[in-house]
Design a binder for these strands. Structure first.
Length: 281
DNA sequence: AGCGGGACCTGTGGGC
DNA sequence: TGCCCACAGGTCCCGC
């Protein structure tokens, strides 16, 4: 599910609920929902959530540890939602859902108690209780590319190496962080670039145009609280609205909103890809 | 180097 | 109604 705009929306919607809350309990319901590099889930008990933020598609909760905890205690709780991961805030007495993979007890600064559920239908998502030593070992984290909204074209253009399709390159989290299948297709459409073009065939102005399109699409998607295809909801249970603005994603066989020609649907590195053969060169 | 295919999981929608 | 297949916001790993 969630790409950068959805994770950003989740982080923002969680912020009022979680900031300054202390984790009072942590129960893991499916072992595979905890990252192999993670500290035990119990390591989170007693930590206080300082802030919630996003890096690429990762949701990050910054933690402060109680003074008695060892230096090995976690400084962050990181979640990768993958396809169907989701955070839900719940009253203290709420029962677990069918797809709840982890549940945290929370105590707010005002003493109020509540729960935080990590639900995940497909169970691809993972939680990682991390400290600095663990992050150094985590290659996905180490190699994560720049934030698209902060990126300059010199950085993108410099990374457009090799003959693989530009769409594959946009999906490579080492090149640029946070773009997934929806926003890759939508950005390439807006930039007028064919997704099958070899990455190294883009000129510097084309790279610039692509990065501008990526930024415009991501910002617009964030303003619309993300895209809800099926499962995605923010922490308040709200769907996004950007799916109503798609130009190409999931529109194979329909007509181009720009020129009226039938949109082409193909596979690029295993992912469904839709583009306009007339508008995208 | 990079692609295809499979794996990890569960659910839904379409075709017959 | 039911069965089977294809497909789904992601990433990793293997073999060619």
């Amino acid at each position: 599910m969630p790409e950068l705009p959805e994770v950003e929306t989740v982080a923002r919607s969680l912020t009022p609920y979680l900031t300054s809350a202390t984790i009072t309990s942590a129960l893991l319901l499916r072992a595979s929902s905890l990252h192999p590099l993670s500290l035990p889930i119990e390591s989170l008990i007693g930590t206080q959530i300082q802030a919630i933020r996003r890096r690429g598609k990762l949701l990050i909760m910054d933690l402060a540890s109680a003074p008695v905890l060892s230096p090995a205690s976690p400084s962050m709780l990181i979640a990768h939602l993958r396809m169907t991961g989701r955070f839900l805030t719940a009253p203290a007495n709420m029962e677990l859902g069918r797809h709840t993979r982890c549940v945290f007890g929370l105590q707010g600064k005002d003493g109020s108690v509540s729960q935080l559920f990590f639900d995940d239908i497909r169970s691809f998502g993972q939680l990682l209780s991390a400290n600095d030593a663990i992050l150094e070992k985590w290659s996905f984290w180490r190699d994560l590319g720049p934030e698209p909204l902060l990126m300059e074209n010199s950085a993108l253009y410099g990374r457009l190496r090799g003959k693989r399709p530009i769409k594959t390159t946009l999906l490579d989290q080492k090149v640029i962080a946070g773009i997934g299948n929806i926003y890759a297709d939508e950005s390439l459409f807006l930039a007028g670039i064919n997704p099958e073009r070899p990455a190294d065939s883009l000129s510097e102005p084309e790279s610039e145009k692509l990065l501008a399109a990526v930024k415009k699409i991501l910002k617009s998607a964030i303003e619309n609280r993300g895209s809800s295809i099926r499962d995605y909801r923010d922490a308040d249970g709200n769907a996004g609205a950007f799916q109503n603005k798609f130009h190409v994603y999931q529109r194979g066989g329909k007509s181009c909103k720009n020129c009226g020609r039938i949109l082409t649907k193909i596979k690029i590195s295993g992912r469904s890809t839709v583009y306009c053969g007339s508008c995208q060169k």
